[in-house]
Nucleic acid binder design. Structure first.
Length: 419
RNA sequence: GGAGAGGUGGCUGAGUGGUCGAAAGCGGCACCCUGCUAAGGUGUUAUACGGUUUCCGUAUCGAGGGUUCGAAUCCCUCUCUCUCCGCCA
């Protein structure tokens, strides 16, 4: 949620920034609604004040056993007027909230302008030498008899996968490695619910606009989580954090469920885009003055996994047109996939400024004042895609899939042989 | 799933129709006093929104509705917590 007062005082500037995302929002009607709401509020409060006074008078009169009919009549009149005004106030307020909750965050000043992925800007690249193969992870999976999409389709449907044998172990080991790394970086490990209520999804910004992206539990206002960002960040909903508790740093491994509505025909091969995947998420709640640095630290925490695994990656700053709804600034970490001869997203690290904090009322208590916190998060990392990256970067066509050095202490084999 | 009890400020806990945004205590903050100081005294201490912004107004006692001139208090619905029983990984 953006700040209404700020919007009112900087309408043109904010409208321009938000519309640089590519969609055209009319923010001036929001400001008009806001002003209308305020003027109604003034009227209503005045009438309520009068009514209160009269009620007090009636109380006094009754105590003295005096007649209070005159006052009761006036109070009735005020009530009639009030209920009319209150009704229109509620309408305006509701309309205003509905509109406001659909407005995305304001992109950061320095966010590169652009319309799509094409306009994202590479800001960093790190390369490692690895064995060369022309096979993609699906073919590699077959060669080591460890990956099966048909079984998954039978059990549930498309966009799921079954992993077996040592590859399934490696998948699990990756989670362990990522959590260990997060804890080394002082994140507190949490085990969190994988189902959340609609308030939580509203808080992080998936609702109301992106309801169709999530799996909803039938006959219940609850959803499977699309990312651990939702339960982790909502741990702090309606909380007031003391300055000396900051920065709050939490992590969790969870499965993530996404309907992938609107991505028909996209990444249909392999396990790049699935309805269910595992992820280790990093979340920070920080003071506004340090959110920019916090994002950088989080990016380096996430990237360190790829440094350890020695797989080439780059950082890409998302342009205004590619930015997610709640984010003000986002750096994607993209990993090298030889089969596609391209870098693919494996983590998305964002600064949400006070946008999520305003939606879920996360505050920081200073000695003097209370201010909204800033929230930061990113994957550290997406496990499925990381496994894909390992498969394609560590496959020796004569030997099998080699276990990256950093992962060896988590499994009891050096490589997965060809079957 | 069945039965019962209960949700009041940072916390404990009074309050069953008016002068209650709410006693008292604890905790916090400010000042004062004081050589036995982990003591004493005084004051202050909720949140949000709005305004003509050192002040004023309105709302908020789990949430929503109702009764009433007037609701923390009465009525209805929902929700959450606790206890007991049942079932169960």
């Amino acid at each position: 949620m953006i700040d209404l007062k700020l919007l009112k005082n900087n309408l043109k500037d904010i409208e321009k920034k938000i519309n640089s995302r590519g969609e055209s929002f009319d923010l001036s009607t929001i400001v008009l609604d806001y002003e209308k709401k305020n003027s109604l509020q003034i009227e209503i409060e005045d009438l309520r004040n009068q009514k209160k006074q009269i009620s007090k008078e009636i109380g006094e009169l009754k105590k003295n056993k005096s007649n209070s009919l005159e006052q009761e009549k006036r109070s009735d009149e005020l009530s009639t007027n009030l209920s009319k005004l209150e009704k229109s106030f509620e309408e305006v307020d509701k309309k205003l909230n509905e509109k406001l909750s659909l407005i995305p965050n304001i992109p950061h000043e320095k966010c590169p302008n652009g319309n799509s992925e094409e306009d994202n800007v590479e800001v960093y690249r790190k390369e490692f030498e690895n064995p060369k193969t022309s096979l993609d992870h699906v073919e590699i999976g077959e060669k080591i008899d460890s990956i099966n999409f048909d079984d998954a389709t039978k059990v549930v449907g498309p966009r799921f996968v079954v992993l077996k044998n040592e590859l399934a172990q490696m998948h699990r080991a990756l989670i362990q490695l990522m959590l260990d790394e997060a804890m080394k970086n002082n994140y507190q490990e949490c085990y969190v619910p994988h189902i959340v209520n609609s308030n939580s999804l509203f808080g992080t910004g998936q609702l109301p606009k992106f309801a169709e992206d999530s799996f909803k539990i039938e006959n219940d206002e609850k959803y499977l989580i699309p990312t651990a960002e939702v339960p982790l960040t909502n741990l702090f909903r309606d909380k007031q954090l003391a300055v000396d508790e900051l920065p709050v740093m939490v992590t969790a491994h969870t499965p993530c469920y996404r309907s992938e509505a609107g991505s028909y025909g996209k990444d249909t091969r392999g396990m790049i885009r699935q309805h269910q995947f595992e992820k280790v998420e990093l979340v920070q709640v920080v003071h506004p003055s340090s959110s920019s640095n916090a994002l950088n630290s989080l990016i380096s925490h996430a990237s360190s996994i790829l440094d350890m695994l020695e797989i080439s990656y780059r950082h890409v700053e998302l342009c205004t047109g590619d930015l997610g709804f709640s984010a003000s600034k986002t750096i994607d970490i993209e990993v090298w996939l030889p089969s596609q001869e391209t870098f693919r997203e494996i983590s998305s690290c964002s600064n949400f400024t006070d946008f999520q904090a305003r939606r879920m009322n996360i505050k920081i208590k200073d000695e003097k004042e209370k201010i909204l916190a800033h929230t930061i998060n990113g994957s550290g990392l997406a496990v499925g895609r990381c496994l894909v990256a390992i498969m394609e970067n560590y496959f020796d066509e004569n030997k099998g899939l080699i276990v990256p050095e950093a992962l060896k202490k988590y499994v009891n084999f050096e490589f997965i042989p060809l079957k």
